[in-house]
Design a protein around this nucleic acid. Structure first.
Length: 263
DNA sequence: TTTACTGTTAGGAC
DNA sequence: TGTCCTAACAGTAA
């Protein structure tokens, strides 16, 4: 379930379990439609060790000081797990990295929207992709510059990885829910106070979810994440949760307290 | 059986 | 030229 907090949890799992172990071999699942490193690219990692990780938005990188990096993208349904090679693998494992000492890293991806590829230089990669600053690293002023000037819906602006990297459908909804702002409002009609509120709530949402390692059961009951159902009661104001499509994405919101609309 | 879904992106509209 | 929007991708679950 990969937006920024889910990717950060995955990065931490890799950091904790897959660094400083010699890479012994790779195993591929059935790989149709999933982009994976070629044999020649995989061979460059054999016998080496990963020594560090990075994350930018939803993009995860595993590599070393001098070697190439592996970019792991979870797509819509990807996940990673570090485990003993003796443990039974889950379904839909597309790629396995085996380390010395009987440990391995599994990349699981049921819907095949994810990918793993070799990247020479992370900064270069981010620049070429045109990714905006990471949503947890951007400051209030830069946020206002890039989001507050967008002519489209505030929700679409938050979802644009070119403006801001890391926000997806769920946490964009949660942010606007807390901000009391209709997801469909044009971003450039929001006051600077409202933009500041969105910035603060976004940061709060992302930091809180990161703090739970993206374990939703640890999030408070009154968060929208537990009430994403048309007709549910809003735990904040007792109003009604509705859904509508904004920028092609299903958006849940409270039609009673998310009342700020375009003029 | 039909519909919806946490992400990305090519192609088209404006 | 730039910005924005839609549809499509694949597989599963409700």
């Amino acid at each position: 379930m990969p937006e920024l907090p889910e990717c950060e949890a995955a990065r931490k799992r890799i950091e904790a379990g897959a660094l400083n172990r010699t890479i012994e071999r790779f195993a591929l699942g059935e790989v149709s439609h999933v982009e994976l490193p070629t044999k020649a690219e995989r061979d460059r990692f054999l016998g080496t060790q990963f020594t560090r990780t990075q994350r930018h938005g939803k993009y995860i990188f595993v590599g070393s000081a001098d070697g190439p990096w592996l970019h792991i993208h979870l797509g819509m349904s990807g996940s990673v797990r570090v485990m003993d090679t003796t443990e039974p693998p889950a379904d839909y494992v597309r790629f396995t990295i085996e380390f010395e000492g009987g440990r391995c890293l599994h990349f699981r991806d049921p819907r095949k929207f994810g990918l793993i590829e070799l990247v020479e230089d992370v900064d270069d990669f981010i620049a070429k992709k045109g990714l905006g600053p990471d949503a947890l690293k951007i400051g209030n002023n830069a946020f206002a510059d890039v989001i507050g000037t967008t002519r489209g819906a505030i929700k679409s602006a938050l979802l644009s990885q070119k403006k801001l990297a890391g926000v997806g459908n769920l946490w964009a909804d949660e942010t606007l829910y807390r901000s009391g702002i209709d997801p469909e409002v044009r971003a450039d009609t929001l006051s600077s106070d409202e933009i500041r509120t969105v910035f603060a709530e976004l940061r709060h949402v992302l930091e809180t979810v990161v703090g739970t390692n993206a374990d939703y059961s640890k999030l408070p009951d009154d968060w929208l994440i537990h009430h994403r159902k048309d007709g549910d009661t809003c735990p904040g104001c007792g109003g009604q949760i509705s859904k509508k499509t904004v920028g092609g994405r299903t958006s849940y919101f409270c039609s009673d307290h998310q009342v700020r609309t375009s003029q």
